[in-house]
């Protein structure tokens, strides 16, 4: 069973994504802020990371940076609001983010992207 780490401070969104991904047979680990996310990356060795950009303590960019140093091959999907600066998204890709999904998003679309990245 593949591990998916969701780093998202909005509990409702993370619970919904967890519910959706569990239906596809993934084990889902959740972190509510950047620090919890970093600890989970180190301790749980996730197969895929889904992270928001604006999260407490450590932002999405710092998470990507850390994840790429710790386990470079792990795919990362960035969730972000459309209002966030284009520069942030570009920086996320430059650091090695695999995909970007703007909010508002369709959870089914997210599930498909997760499946595609994990199969690759």
């Amino acid at each position: 069973m593949k591990n998916v780490l969701i780093i998202e401070d909005d509990k409702l969104i993370s619970r919904l994504v967890q519910f959706r991904l569990k239906k596809d047979g993934y084990k889902v680990i959740m972190a509510e802020d950047g620090l919890q996310g970093i600890i989970a990356i180190e301790n749980e060795s996730p197969d895929l990371i889904i992270t928001d950009v604006m999260i407490p303590f450590k932002n999405g960019i710092e998470i990507i940076n850390h994840a790429k140093k710790f386990s470079p091959k792990v795919p990362i999907i960035v969730l972000s609001s459309l209002g966030e600066e284009e520069g942030t998204v570009m920086e996320a890709f430059n650091l090695g983010a695999s995909d970007f999904i703007p909010k508002p998003f369709n959870p089914n679309e997210l599930a498909i992207r997760v499946k595609r990245l994990l199969n690759n």
Partner: peptide, 15 residues
């Protein structure tokens, strides 16, 4: 509140 919050973050059929 939860429905409104989701409505802002979801799109398509979910809305």
């Amino acid at each position: 509140q939860e429905i409104i919050s989701l409505n802002k973050n979801m799109k398509g059929e979910f809305k």
